[in-house]
Design a binder for these strands. Structure first.
Length: 264
DNA sequence: CTAGTAACAGTGAACCACGC
DNA sequence: GCGTGGTTCACTGTTACTAG
C-alpha cells in the first residue's frame, strides 16, 4: 500500500479506536494543520494528536517522530516541536495502540514489544506506552517558564524581563559581575534515563542566538543550566548513573542550576 | 577491553495527489 | 510534464550501554 493511503488507514483505525472508548474526537478541516486529530478528555481538555503508523521489526514497533517534505533543495525534515501534544501509534502487526508524549520523541522511536536478549536501561517498553494505561493524559504543566524565573530570582539572580517579538531568547539574566546572558527557557522530561528537551527543532535557539539554555524538567523537578556552546545540535543529560564512566556522558547532576551558576 | 545490543540521527527513495 | 507536498520504508553510521 502506498504511504499516503497507509497513513489515512491508520488515522481511520485510530479514530475508530478512540470512538470505541467513548473519547470525543474531531478532525481538523483541510490538511494544513500539523496534527491529525483533536481529542477531548473527561475534564474537557483538548489534546492535539499526531497519528503514526508503527512498523513491527525485530521485536520492536518503530515510528518516525518527524514529518518529511520535499522542496527545490531536496528533502527537508521537521520535528513537531510542540505543534502536537501526543503521538498515537497504531501497529497493525501487533494490533497495539500506543500514546507517546511529543516531548519524549526525537526523530524516531522504537517501542519494544518482545523480550530483549539483554535487559537494556534505554529500552522503551511498549507496555509503558499502552494507550489505555496512558489515557487521559496528565494536564499540561502550566507556568513552568514562570517557575524557572521564580527559581532564578530566589537565588538572587537578576532577570531583566521577558523577550519581545521574535527574539530567540526568553529572558536576559545578569550575574554578580554585571555580565548579561541571553537565556532560552525550555521544558524537559526524562526519557530513557536522560533529560531531553527540544534542541534540534526549527524553533530551537542557535549558538549565535543565545548564551544559556535553562531546562525545566517536569520529572526531576530540577532546573538545568547548559551553556549553549556546550553542544552543537543536541545534548541529553543522563539522570541515572552509568556503570562505565564514559567521558562523553553528560551527567544531569553536573548541570543543575545550583552547580552551574554563575556560568564560567 | 571487547563484542554484542539497542536507540538515535540522518539520508535517500518510492508513491500518489495537486497546482502551475 | 514538472515541481512540490506529505507520508512511510529502508538503510547506514554513531553513541551508549551490558555482559563476559
Amino acid at each position: 500500500m502506498d504511504p499516503h493511503r497507509q497513513g489515512d488507514l491508520t488515522e481511520a483505525i485510530v479514530i475508530a479506536e478512540l470512538k470505541r472508548r467513548d473519547i470525543p474526537v474531531s478532525v481538523p478541516f483541510g490538511d494544513n494543520e500539523r496534527y491529525d486529530l483533536l481529542a477531548e478528555d473527561d475534564s474537557g481538555g483538548i489534546w492535539k494528536l499526531q497519528v503514526k503508523t508503527g512498523r513491527y521489526r525485530d521485536g520492536k514497533v518503530l515510528f518516525n517522530g518527524k514529518s518529511q517534505h520535499t522542496n527545490a533543495s531536496g528533502h527537508t525534515y521537521q520535528e513537531y516541536d510542540g505543534d502536537v501534544d501526543y503521538f498515537v501509534i497504531h501497529c497493525d502487526e501487533v494490533g497495539g495502540l500506543y500514546l507517546v508524549p511529543e516531548s519524549e520523541v526525537g526523530s524516531q522511536m522504537s517501542l519494544r514489544v518482545a523480550d530483549a536478549t539483554q535487559d537494556h536501561r534505554t529500552i522503551n517498553w511498549a507496555d509503558d506506552y499502552d494507550f489505555d494505561e496512558r489515557w487521559p493524559p496528565e494536564p499540561a504543566t502550566t507556568g513552568w517558564r514562570d517557575a524557572v524565573i521564580a527559581d532564578l530570582r530566589e537565588r538572587g539572580i537578576d532577570v531583566l524581563g521577558a523577550r519581545g517579538g521574535d527574539a530567540p531568547y526568553d529572558v536576559v539574566v545578569r550575574d554578580a559581575d554585571e555580565t548579561l546572558y541571553r537565556t532560552s527557557i525550555r521544558p524537559g522530561s526524562v526519557s530513557g534515563g536522560r533529560v531531553r528537551f527540544d534542541t534540534g527543532s526549527t524553533h530551537a535557539p542557535g549558538r549565535d542566538d543565545v548564551d544559556l539554555v535553562l531546562v525545566r524538567c517536569r520529572d526531576t523537578e530540577e532546573t538545568y543550566l547548559i551553556e549553549r556552546d556546550a553542544y552543537d545540535e543536541s545534548i541529553s543529560l543522563r539522570v541515572e548513573p552509568t556503570r562505565n564512566d564514559d567521558k562523553r556522558t553528560h551527567r544531569a547532576a553536573d548541570y543543575t542550576l545550583d552547580r552551574r551558576w554563575p556560568p564560567a
